[in-house]
Structure formats: structure tokens, C-alpha cells
Design a protein around this nucleic acid. Structure first.
Lengths: 97, 97
DNA sequence: TAGATATTTAGATAAATGTCTAATTATATT
DNA sequence: AATATAATTAGACATTTATCTAAATATCTA
């Protein structure tokens, strides 16, 4: 299975896409992120875990807080998938995913 | 819910991404598409239906066959989402999804 | 060290998803 | 009209997913 599968699955949920958009502006703690949702904190924690597994975000503890940041390099790989798709030159046999 | 939700969900399955890649090269019938998978034809039919609902592909019957084609305009919208994400200038409050 | 705060982990549950086989629909051919 | 071919729809089933509450872990502070 392609390495792209986890990021694609991770991005299929609207709450997780919203988290990604929030992190675009600045790094945020789990609590700050959760404040932007109606959902319970454990649910947000779960979503953060999935984004982390997909390598779309990184986390770092600072004292009591855990800060989440966007990892743009994995993003680039997903963007490349779409880029390949826009190039309508030919076949699919050599594609990665 | 954003219009982007269906395409993102549709693209979260690897078989459906493979179908998209196949259609990048040329239009194909449902049967030709199914020949590239181990899966049963009804399963492929189901995947095609989801891609169609997401407006990522279109279909057109010609005689006994139904031809599937890529709809690149919806692709562009998904690409735009990523484009916005790569632009790290600011907040998320005005974002569409 | 006790208590407060931030976050995750565990366990339960309802809903969504991907797959299959069997049956149906639509078209073409003999 | 009967049969063959292409594809979808229907219904069943196991797995995954998103969510919740309750409990556990980690850190800070009085």
C-alpha cells in the first residue's frame, strides 16, 4: 500500500481538514485546537493522533501543553499526486499510488 | 458541509485513486476498468458510483458499454484547497472548507 | 506532597464503508 | 423472440470509523 494512503484517509474527515487549516496560521496546543470544535477533547485527541500517524502534523510537549504543527513535506507529496493527475499525457502503469 | 467533502472522501480509497489514474490516460468502460482489479465487478461499479457522486468522473453509455471519463474541474477545486494550505500567510476563518 | 490543569488512553457504541453473491436492467445479436 | 453480454442494483456481512464518558498519565504550583 502506498505511503499516500494514510494522508489521504486522514484528509477525508472535515474536522481534520479544519485542524490542518488552523495549523496553517500558527502552531497550537491540543486545548486551543479543541476550543474551536463542539466535539469532546478526547475526540479531538483522536483526530490529532490520526494526523500524526499520517505525518501531516508533528507534536512537541512544552510544559503542560502539547503543541501541534503542520508538517508541510507530506503535504507536498499529496500535492504531487494531484500534479501528476493534471498532467494528462499518458498511462498509469508507472504511478506510485 | 463543504462541497469538497465528497471528493475528499472519494479519494480516500486506493482503488478509487487507481481508477482516477487509469482514466487520466484515456476514457474506459466499466468492464475495462474492472479488468485491472481483482475485485468483483459490482464492487468496481460501487466505486465508480462514488466517484460519480463526487463529480470526479462522468459516465456515458455507448451501446452495451458505459464509458467513464475524468472530470478535471472538480480536481482543480481540490488542488486549490492544497494550494491555500501551502500559502502559510494567515488564518483560517475565511476558508471554504 | 496534594491539588489543579492539560492531554491521552481505554472501552463502548452507532454509523459508515468496502466487499461479496444473486438478481435485475439495458442493449445487441442470432 | 430468445439468448448473450455489459453493467448496475439489492441485500447481507465484517471491518473501520467517529464519537462519547470515564479513567489514567504528565506536568506545574501552592
Amino acid at each position: 500500500m502506498s505511503i499516500l494512503n494514510m494522508p489521504f484517509k486522514a484528509l477525508s474527515d472535515p474536522s481534520r481538514r479544519k485542524i490542518i487549516q488552523m495549523l496553517k496560521g500558527k502552531d497550537m496546543t491540543a486545548g486551543e485546537i479543541a476550543d474551536n470544535f463542539q466535539m469532546s477533547k478526547p475526540s479531538i485527541s483522536h483526530h490529532l493522533s490520526i494526523l500524526k500517524q499520517a505525518d501531516l502534523v508533528t507534536d512537541e510537549r512544552r510544559g503542560q501543553n502539547i503543541y501541534y504543527s503542520l508538517n508541510t513535506t507530506v503535504f507536498q507529496e499529496v500535492v504531487n499526486w494531484f500534479f501528476n493527475m493534471t498532467d494528462r499525457s499518458g498511462g498509469f502503469e508507472n504511478e506510485k499510488d
